[in-house]
Amino acid sequence: MAGEIIRTYDLTKRYGDLTAVDSLNLEIQPGEVFGLLGPNGAGKTTTILMLLGLTEPTAGRAEVCGLDPTREPLAVKRQVGYLPDNVGFYDELTGRQNLRYTAELNGLPREEAERRIEAALEQVGLTAVADRKVATYSRGMRQRLGLADVLLKQPRVAILDEPTLGLDPEAAQEFLVLIRRLSREGGMTVLLSSHLLNQVQAVCDRVGIFVAGRMIACGRIDELAAQVFAGEPLQVEVEVEPASEAVLSAIRQTPGVREAQPAAPGEGPAGRLRLLLDRDVRGEVVRRIVGAGGTVLHLQLRSHNLDEIYRRYFRGGDGDGAAAAAGVARPAG
């Protein structure tokens, strides 16, 4: 299909004996928010650098906006915005001056540049501090300035390397929502990398999971969950009243219910139960509870989050995966 905006063909990067990226085949559709997930040192940054032409692949090739970043780096960089991991700015200049420099480097005419700078600052909410020196900015402000720096180019693709690193959870969430919104509004394709999975799962359309240079899974989060947890019981949390023996046995006797345990003590009210179902028989369970004279106060199917999926992949993976997981503290460089 010719529609992909980013495509790689057996993209490989070796540093001596170490294979940082191993035969990566990636396809990203226009307008998509794609998450590149994996522990530090899994090859995410290297992949990004190859997509931008900042390093050359050892083998294979990449295609960004239909161009080869190794051969035509300038044409690619005109259409791709990049927010590096731990972005830096010229501290002695103001936020606006930093953006102005980027605009000049992109060859934007002055009035157009000023207009775009104003708009980008507005979008990331930095208008009020735009004329303060970057040295006075907080980590979150720098990160948002970095995003403004990307938006200013009005790129077709934005590549964000660890955009939430170093932000507190609230700021990170806010930042991701902002990215999501900007992507939706502007039709911008976003490729973001992260090792913080639960943060990212809410904003990504699709994710690719990287372990030791290989992408071991790729797809929508619910699809991945279905793959990983195939054949495992569904977990349902239910709260009933009264928590009488009659009600409990009614639940246990429902066909398809494998197990019904009271939730661990201290975890909410006494009537809270954790059920394991072989298949989705939630309706039947509710009917039986009501039939036994009980009331259902709360019922929730626990969905699998990315962290679980991710951990599962590690457990299922070979020794390399475990080694990579142990090396989480290693810096990305």
Partner: peptide
């Protein structure tokens, strides 16, 4: 060291 180099080189410049 100021981490501006990669941002600089990600712009369409030689």
């Amino acid at each position: 060291n100021r981490r501006t180099l990669s941002r600089l080189l990600a712009q369409p410049i030689h």
